[in-house]
């Protein structure tokens, strides 16, 4: 119990004292996971839209696969990207293993299914009557689609928040692809794993509290965007 209290005290001290290493790790976590969320959004939201608005054979099966991949273990996503980026792998010539860019790719792979799936859910949630109505009012197909997207945007942003949350909290892919290199690929979650294995329990809890703190800031920021 004392260690949890110590953790809160230490988190407070680290934030107040602006410890340069903690700030650096926090900023890196935030940048990598935001970038991964951006990349994943650019792929997954149009993908979700395409699947929703087009009719094709195997659509139900594809949706099932996407939803199954919600459960993609972070270590497996990490290993998959590790094998791609390793010097012995197909993309080895890029030299991206053990780099922040590699970590962005890993986290993006991890959250694309969640984001695509949430986009599908969001679009399906728009009442059929709305699209029927605007078509009846003489809207073109493009206009109808954009109206549906507009109606669905809250739920899509909800999906983005969920994806960001999964990205910034995961440790498996970050550890395997980034390698937890100090000053280069060390992020909050891998730092927590290291400090725990070194026995610095209070510091681990402190870093966990900081992680939750920045997750809250990002969530609030996205809500503000949504409110506009």
């Amino acid at each position: 119990m004392n260690e949890i209290i110590d953790g809160f005290v230490q988190a407070f001290q680290l934030i107040i004292s602006l410890d340069p290493e903690v700030i650096e790790i926090t900023a890196r976590s935030l940048l990598i996971s935001l970038a991964a969320t951006a990349v994943a959004s650019l792929v997954a939201i149009p993908l979700g839209g395409l699947i929703h608005f087009r009719e094709f054979g195997g659509k139900r099966g594809l949706i099932t696969i996407i939803q199954t991949l919600y459960a993609l273990p972070t270590v497996v996503a990490g290993l998959f990207v590790f094998l791609l980026l390793s010097r012995a792998g197909p993309l080895g010539f890029l030299g991206l293993l053990f780099t922040p860019t590699g970590m962005v790719i890993g986290q993006a792979v991890l959250i694309i299914p969640v984001l695509a799936g949430m986009t599908l859910v969001a679009l399906s949630g728009v009442k059929k009557t709305i699209s029927d109505e605007i078509v009846a009012l003489g809207a073109t197909q493009t206009q109808a689609i954009l109206t549906i997207i507009k109606e669905a945007r809250f739920a899509i942003i909800g999906g983005i928040i969920l994806g960001f949350g999964r990205a910034i909290s995961e440790v498996g892919a970050a550890m395997i692809i980034g390698g937890n290199i100090r000053g280069y690929t060390r992020v909050l979650t891998t730092a927590i794993a290291l400090e725990t294995s070194m026995g610095n329990i209070a510091l681990s809890i402190a870093l966990g509290i900081i992680l939750l703190g920045i997750a809250m800031v990002v969530t609030v920021a996205l809500f503000l965007v949504q409110e506009r």
Partner: peptide, 14 residues
Amino acid sequence: MFLVTLVLGAILIS
């Protein structure tokens, strides 16, 4: 705008 911000973030990180 939000997506643009995210992309800028991506460019920053690279």
